[in-house]
Amino acid sequence: MTRATLVFRYSVFAVLATLANLAAQRLVLAAVDGEIGFAMAVIAGTGAGLVLKYILDKRWIFDDRSTGLAAHGRKFTLYTIMGVVTTLVFWGFETAFWLIWRTDPMRELGAVIGLAIGYVIKYQLDLRFVFRTGMARPERRAQP
Rank of each mutant, 00 (worst) to 15 (best):
M1Y: 04
T2Q: 15
T2M: 08
R3Q: 11
R3Y: 09
R3L: 07
R3K: 14
A4K: 15
T5D: 08
T5E: 13
L6W: 06
V7P: 06
V7N: 08
R9E: 08
Y10H: 06
S11E: 02
S11C: 11
V12E: 04
V12Q: 14
V12S: 14
F13Y: 15
A14H: 09
A14D: 15
V15K: 04
T18K: 12
L19F: 14
A20L: 09
L22H: 02
A23F: 06
A24K: 03
A24D: 00
A24P: 01
Q25Y: 02
R26K: 05
R26A: 08
V28C: 07
V28K: 00
V28D: 00
A30Y: 05
A31F: 05
A31W: 04
V32D: 01
D33Q: 14
G34W: 14
G34C: 02
E35T: 10
E35A: 09
I36D: 00
F38D: 02
A39V: 15
A41N: 04
A44W: 01
G45L: 00
G45A: 02
T46V: 11
A48Q: 00
G49D: 03
V51M: 01
V51P: 00
V51F: 01
L52G: 06
L52I: 04
K53F: 00
K53Y: 05
I55A: 04
L56A: 04
K58D: 02
K58I: 01
W60A: 07
D63K: 04
D63A: 13
D64G: 05
D64Y: 15
S66E: 03
L69W: 00
L69T: 01
A70I: 05
H72E: 01
H72K: 00
G73L: 01
G73V: 10
R74M: 13
R74W: 11
K75V: 00
F76R: 02
L78E: 07
L78R: 13
T80F: 12
I81G: 12
I81T: 08
M82W: 07
G83K: 15
G83L: 15
V85P: 08
T86A: 09
T87S: 15
T87F: 11
V89P: 14
W91D: 12
W91R: 07
G92Q: 09
G92H: 12
E94V: 10
E94I: 14
A96L: 09
A96P: 04
A96S: 01
W98N: 13
W98S: 05
L99M: 06
I100M: 00
W101G: 03
W101V: 03
D104K: 07
D104T: 08
D104Y: 11
P105S: 04
M106A: 14
G110V: 10
G110K: 11
V112H: 04
I113E: 03
I113V: 15
I117F: 08
I117T: 07
G118I: 09
G118D: 11
V120N: 05
I121C: 04
I121F: 14
Q124K: 15
L125P: 14
R128A: 12
R128G: 10
R128N: 15
F129C: 14
F131Q: 12
R132H: 15
T133I: 05
A136I: 05
R137Y: 08
P138Q: 10
R140H: 08
R140G: 09
